[in-house]
């Protein structure tokens, strides 16, 4: 009885699946954030109720938990979310769905055999929003709002590795537009400031990215 109370009071989503990946338990947190009552999903196959879970990574993780009893982790950074719950925050969020940090682990019976797995779901939307803002601030020029030199270096590295992985052509076109003789409007500089604008295109499928360096 006490465990049941904890199960439903805890500020974490908990889902329990059996070896056929059917939902056996769906706690109160999951009901509230999904809008789906436990009765509606318990007994149903997880992949039918949530088709977005039907990925090689999720299935591999379930198999490894049932085979080895290890824990599997699903970070917000790469997965975004496991369960597509609409963002419940009224404070500005750029994410359509709740961002989640999840983990999966084994549940054993009295003979120590793994009969179920649990998935816990943590809402990390707020943290993800702050992180996103920090990344933006780090990659954009504060005055003009366009991408800065750090962004170019990061993107160049990424696209170069992508080119190496997939073996597709890779080229860079840089067009200089020099605008000399502009004074800074910030006020404190006495010296002559030069602004040079770079336009950098990363080809293949990504399209163009405007950035600024001075």
């Amino acid at each position: 009885m006490i465990l049941n109370q904890i199960f439903d009071a805890i500020n974490l989503g908990i889902v329990i699946l059996d070896t056929d990946l059917k939902i056996q338990k769906w706690n109160r947190w999951m009901e509230i954030h999904s809008g789906i009552e436990a009765d509606e999903v318990v007994g149903k196959h997880a992949l039918e109720s949530f088709p977005n879970l039907d990925t090689p990574k999720f299935i591999r993780s379930c198999k490894s938990v049932f085979s080895f009893g290890n824990f599997c982790f699903f970070s917000q950074k790469l997965h975004g979310y496991l369960f597509p719950f609409k963002s419940s925050s009224y404070v500005g969020s750029e994410f359509e769905y709740m961002q989640q940090s999840c983990a999966m682990g084994p549940l054993r019976d009295e003979n120590n055999e793994i009969k179920y797995l649990f998935i816990y779901v943590q809402d990390v939307t707020e943290v993800a929003v702050y992180e996103q803002k920090l990344v933006e601030m780090n990659m954009r020029d504060g005055l003009t709002g366009i991408y800065n030199r750090r962004f170019m270096d990061t993107k160049l590295n990424e696209e170069y590795f992508r080119h190496k992985r997939y073996g597709r052509p890779f080229s860079i076109v840089i067009i200089w537009t020099s605008m000399r003789g502009l004074y800074s409007e910030i006020g404190e500089f006495e010296n002559f400031c030069c602004y040079t604008e770079y336009r950098l295109f990363v080809p293949v499928w990504r399209g163009g990215i405007l950035l600024h360096a001075s």
């Binding site: 591999r60 490894s64 290890n70 824990f71 599997c72 982790f73 790469l78 590795f161 992985r165």
Partner: peptide
Amino acid sequence: PVDILERETLMEVGNILIGACVG
């Protein structure tokens, strides 16, 4: 980004391999 994908893939496979042997 490729570096995040690489990191996550290493983490996933590493987690499974370690879990298999230790488990």
